[in-house]
């Protein structure tokens, strides 16, 4: 077919590496590197909790109620004589699981709803958008308290609570992104060659709205950890005797002037993890979704 060769320029740009994005997230940001390290450390602690923890987090003892810090119990003991450090180490499991599970589930549900609303429009859009607007009118914590109060505590209830609290945000972002991606010529060109609607959604819409969703997920991991701690502090989250940073602080309040260490320790842990996830999320956003960065 040389007759048809009208001399296309053989200009080809270099292929960028797959790991370039990861590199960009850390490049020139020492705070992000520290944040990632902190996150990694806490994840390790959560996984290795049974190995690291010096005591059983649930073992009570009348002989050492409300002890201050000592070489045996670095952060002292609580009103049931349980080792606070061990409870904190086991509590990190709680925080990490909710921190990762809730935004992931919320992203799946919220993105599905948002894409349906954005792509199909019409009555589906109206119903979904109105419900989402309604839910967005409540602050997440208030919404979480409302649902938790109705459902009660317990692991799966907290998962549901946090997921419902986060779904509206994902749905709104996914809908807005879908509306704009839907207008892209490559979507129209897929329709023009006869691609079926589900394929268009999964192949041409979802991958192109993924960046802001991922950004939202990393940013809301911090919120999920904070919310779970808040709920547990209020007594409607993780239920005693299971340890959670939130209910460690709550228990610590009873003996605030005897030993402030449970509160200081758990408070510091929450602060560190939330701050780290926020910093990391900001960095991810700057790289994946530079436009939304004010």
């Amino acid at each position: 077919m040389t007759a048809l060769d009208h001399g296309a320029q053989q200009v080809v740009a270099p292929e960028p590496g797959k790991f370039e994005i990861v590199g960009k997230i850390f490049a020139g940001r020492p705070a992000t590197v520290v944040a990632a390290f902190v996150i990694f450390a806490f994840i390790l602690i959560a996984i290795l909790a049974p190995v690291i923890a010096p005591y059983d987090a649930l073992a009570q003892s009348f002989l050492r109620i409300n002890h201050g810090p000592s070489w045996q119990h670095w952060l002292g003991t609580d009103q049931f004589g349980r080792d606070v450090l061990s409870r904190m180490i086991y509590g990190s499991r709680n925080s990490m699981i909710f921190g990762l599970l809730a935004p992931t589930l919320a992203a799946i549900v919220g993105t599905t709803l948002g894409v349906i609303a954005g792509y199909f429009g019409g009555i589906a859009d109206r119903v979904i958008s109105r419900v989402v607007d309604m839910l967005l009118a409540f602050p997440e914590l208030l919404l979480a308290i409302l649902i938790a109060a109705a459902l009660g505590g317990g692991f799966w209830n907290i998962v549901v609570v946090l997921t419902v609290a986060f779904v509206p945000g994902f749905a709104r972002v996914a809908r807005a992104q879908t509306l704009s991606v839907k207008q892209e010529p490559y979507v129209e060109s897929a329709i023009a060659v006869g691609v079926r609607t589900p394929t268009i959604i999964f192949r041409h819409i979802v991958p192109n709205i993924a960046a802001p969703i991922v950004v939202l997920m990393t940013l809301w991991t911090a919120s999920a950890i904070r919310l779970e701690a808040s709920l547990s502090f209020l007594g409607i989250g993780t239920q005693a005797p299971n340890p959670s940073w939130g209910n460690i602080i709550r228990d610590g309040l009873n003996n605030l002037f005897g030993s402030p260490w449970p509160i200081i320790g758990a408070g510091l842990a929450i602060t560190c993890v939330v701050l780290s996830f926020n910093l990391f999320g900001d960095a991810v956003r700057d790289v994946l979704d530079p436009e939304t960065n004010q």
């Binding site: 892209e184 010529p185 490559y186 129209e188 060109s189 897929a190 023009a192 060659v193 006869g194 079926r196 041409h204 991958p207 192109n208």
Partner: peptide, 22 residues
């Protein structure tokens, strides 16, 4: 109509936007 698209094709104005970037 989707089946008919086998015979009926479209070339788009925007060569940048009409190819899925990913």
């Amino acid at each position: 109509m989707r089946a008919m698209r086998k015979d009926l094709q479209f070339v788009f104005q925007d060569p940048y936007g009409s190819l899925s970037p990913r």
